[in-house]
Write a protein that binds this DNA or RNA. Sequence first.
DNA 1: ATACCGATTAACT
DNA 2: GTTAATCGGTATA
Length: 198
Amino acid sequence: MLPLSFYLRPDVVALARALLGKVLVTEFGDGRTAGRIVETEAYNGRLDKASHAYKGPTKRTDVMFGEGGVAYVYLCYGIHHLFNIVTNAGGEPHAILIRGVEPLEGIPVMMERTGAAAAGPALGRGPGKVGRAFGFHATQCGLSLLGPEICLYDDGFRVPDDELGISPRIGVDYAGADAALPYRFYLKGHPSVSGKPR
DNA sequence: ATACCGATTAACT
DNA sequence: GTTAATCGGTATA
C-alpha cells in the first residue's frame, strides 16, 4: 500500500503524474472493487482558478485544507460523485481528480452499481462513472486512503514515456488562463481514458 | 429566503 | 451537435 508520505509531497502536478498506473481499491461493504488509474488531473489549490479551494475553505472544501492522504468526494451536476485524492500536509489545499480507471477486480459489482449491461473498460471511463463503479458517495469525504475502505497500491506497473499523454484539463473553461495549464495526465490510447483518443 | 450553476453523462435531433 | 437530468454549495438580498 502507498504510505502516507506518498501523499505529502509538495508538487501536486508531479504527484498526478505519479498516480498513473497505480491500483485503486475500495471496499464499502457491498463488494470489493479494484482498478488501475489511467487518467488524472491536478488542482493546484489557492493558485488555481479551476480548483474549488481557490477562494479559501468552505464547508464543502474544508477537507482539502487538512493533511493529505484522504478522499475529497463531492456531488457534481446533482448527479455525479467525483473522487479526488487530497495531497500535501496542512496548508496548501491540493487535490487530484481521478478521471479514468481500468477495471481489474469486482467487475460484477461495478456492473450492478452502474447498471451497465456489459463488462469492459467503459465501466471506469470518465470521473462520474469512476464514482459510480467504485461506490463513492459524498458522505465518504475525508476518509483515509490508507484503508480499510479505500487504499492505493503500486503493483509494479510502470508507464512508458511514449505512452504518457499530457493535456489541458477537461470542463474547466470558466477558469480563464488556468484552463490552459497542462495538468491532465493519461495513458495514450487506453480505452478507459475519457474524451476523444489522441 | 431565493437564484444561479457546475472538475458530467446519456439520450436525443 | 444539442440538451435534459438533478441538487448541494455559494452568492446575493
